[in-house]
Amino acid sequence: MQFTLFRRRVLALLATVLTVGVVSSLAQAEPLTTVRIGVATAGGGNPISWGGSPGSVARLNGWLEEEFKPDGVKVEWLFFKGAGPAVNEALSNKQIDFAYHGDLPSVVGRANGLKTRILLISGARNNLYVVTPPDSDIKSIEDLKGKRVSIFRGTNGHLVANNLLNAHGLQERDIKGINLDTGSAQAALASKGVDAAFGGPEFFKLRDEGLVRIAYSTQGQDPSFTRQAHLHVRDEFANEHPEAVQRVVDVFVRAADWASDEKNRDALFKLWARSGTPYESYVAEFANQQLAVRNSPLIDDFAIGRYKAVVRDALKLKLIRRDVSVDDWFDPSYLQKSLKKLGLEHRWTRFDVKGQPEPQAQAQGQAQTVASGSGG
Rank of each mutant, 00 (worst) to 15 (best):
V212N: 01
V212E: 09
Y216M: 02
Y216G: 03
S217V: 09
S217L: 04
S217D: 08
T218F: 15
T218H: 05
Q219E: 10
G220K: 13
Q221N: 12
Q221E: 10
Q221G: 15
D222T: 10
P223W: 10
P223R: 08
S224F: 05
S224Q: 07
T226I: 08
R227F: 10
R227E: 14
Q228P: 08
A229G: 05
L231V: 10
H232I: 07
H232M: 05
D235Y: 08
D235P: 01
F237M: 06
F237D: 04
N239A: 10
H241D: 00
H241P: 01
H241R: 01
P242N: 02
E243A: 07
E243L: 01
E243M: 00
V245P: 04
V245A: 06
Q246R: 05
V248A: 05
V248Q: 14
V248C: 08
V248D: 08
V249L: 06
V249Y: 01
D250C: 11
F252H: 12
F252I: 03
V253K: 13
V253C: 07
R254K: 15
R254F: 12
A256R: 02
D257K: 14
D257E: 07
D257L: 05
W258V: 09
A259V: 09
A259N: 12
S260V: 11
S260N: 11
D261F: 10
D261R: 15
K263S: 14
K263M: 11
N264S: 13
N264T: 09
D266M: 10
A267I: 04
K270Y: 10
A273G: 03
A273K: 08
R274Y: 05
S275R: 10
S275E: 12
T277A: 15
T277L: 08
Y279F: 07
Y279G: 01
S281C: 15
S281A: 15
Y282Q: 09
Y282R: 05
Y282W: 15
Y282F: 15
V283Q: 11
V283D: 13
